[in-house]
C-alpha cells in the first residue's frame, strides 16, 4: 500500500525543566494503523505521545521542540492553536478521567458542545454512534442520564474512549489505557482498538508486550528518551535489529 503518512514526527525533543525526556525522535505513522510505543518505565513514552497533541506543554516548566505533522500541518508551526489541534487528536489516559459532575450523556457530548454543536438531535445521534464505537452502547443506553461516575472501571475507560471519539478525531492517542483494568475489561478494549482502526489512527503506549503484539501493526521501542527501533510489530518481536530491543522484549533488561 502506498499511503501518505498521517502523522510525521521529525526531531522531536521534550524537556521537563532541564531534564531531557524525549531526545530527537522521528517516526511516521500510516493512517488506519495501530502503532504501539513500548519501553521501560520512565523512558519517555507518555511524554512522547503527550507531545503529539501538545498536552506536554501544559505541565509547568515543560517544553517541546521539533516538528509534528498532522497531514500537512506542523502542529508546532507558528500560529497554530493547540486547542484546535486537540480537537483533531483525541486522547485516552491511563486512569479513566470522566467529568465527575456530568452524566454519561454529557460526558460523551462534552467535546461536541465545546465544538459548538447545540442541536439536541445531532448530539444524540453522535453520542449514540460514539458509544457504539466504544462498545458501550448496550450497557449504558438505559442510563444515559445517570452520573458518569456510576459506571465500572472498564466501562469508565470505554466512556472516555467514546468521549474522545465523539468529536471524530483523525488520530487517537492512548496512554496505557488498560493498565488499571482487569483482564476481561482489557480484552474488551483490545478488541475495540482493533475494530476502531477503521475510524481512526491509533497510537498506544503499553507496558504489556503481549498487548502490543496482539493489537499493533508497528511498534516503536523507546529507551531513555531515544527511539531505539521502529518497525513492523511482527519483526520487532521476532527478529529485532537492535540488541537493546531484543534484551527488552525477552525480559533480560536491567
Amino acid at each position: 500500500m502506498d499511503m501518505q503518512p498521517i502523522v510525521r514526527v521529525r526531531k522531536l525533543n521534550a524537556w521537563f525543566g532541564a531534564a531531557h525526556a524525549v531526545k530527537n525522535v522521528s517516526l511516521e505513522v500510516e493512517p488506519h494503523s495501530v502503532t504501539a510505543i513500548i519501553g521501560p518505565s520512565g523512558c519517555g513514552k507518555s511524554t512522547f505521545i503527550r507531545c503529539l497533541n501538545r498536552l506536554h506543554e501544559e505541565v509547568p516548566d515543560a517544553r517541546a521542540h521539533g516538528e509534528v505533522f498532522l497531514g500537512d500541518t506542523n502542529i508546532y508551526g507558528e500560529g497554530i492553536d493547540p486547542v484546535v489541534i486537540r480537537r483533531k487528536i483525541g486522547m485516552v489516559f491511563q486512569k479513566p478521567n470522566p467529568f465527575p459532575a456530568a452524566s454519561v450523556f454529557d460526558n460523551v457530548a462534552a467535546g461536541l458542545k465545546l465544538a459548538g454543536i447545540r442541536k439536541k438531535a445531532l448530539l444524540m445521534e453522535r453520542v449514540e454512534r460514539s458509544l457504539r464505537h466504544a462498545a458501550l452502547w448496550d450497557e449504558v443506553k438505559a442510563k444515559l442520564g445517570s452520573p458518569g461516575m456510576s459506571l465500572s472501571g472498564g466501562q469508565l475507560q470505554r466512556l472516555c474512549i467514546a468521549r474522545a471519539l465523539a468529536v471524530e478525531p483523525s488520530v487517537l492517542l492512548m496512554d496505557e489505557p488498560t493498565s488499571a483494568l482487569d483482564p476481561i475489561a482489557t480484552k474488551k478494549i483490545e478488541e475495540l482498538i482493533v475494530n476502531l482502526r477503521k475510524e481512526v489512527t491509533i497510537i498506544i503506549v503499553t507496558h504489556n508486550m503481549q498487548q502490543a503484539a496482539r493489537i499493533s501493526d508497528r511498534t516503536a521501542f523507546l529507551l531513555l528518551g531515544e527511539l531505539i527501533e521502529f518497525g513492523a510489530t511482527s519483526e520487532i518481536f521476532t527478529v529485532p535489529k537492535e540488541k537493546q530491543t531484543e534484551a527488552y522484549i525477552t525480559g533480560k533488561f536491567g
Binding site: G90, P100, L114
Partner: peptide
C-alpha cells in the same frame, strides 16, 4: 483536583476557561 481531570478537558480541545 487532580491534574488528570483538567487534562480530560484540555485533551478534548477545551480552552482554559472551558
Amino acid at each position: 483536583i487532580p491534574r488528570s481531570d483538567r487534562e480530560a478537558a484540555l485533551a478534548l480541545g477545551a480552552t482554559r476557561w472551558e
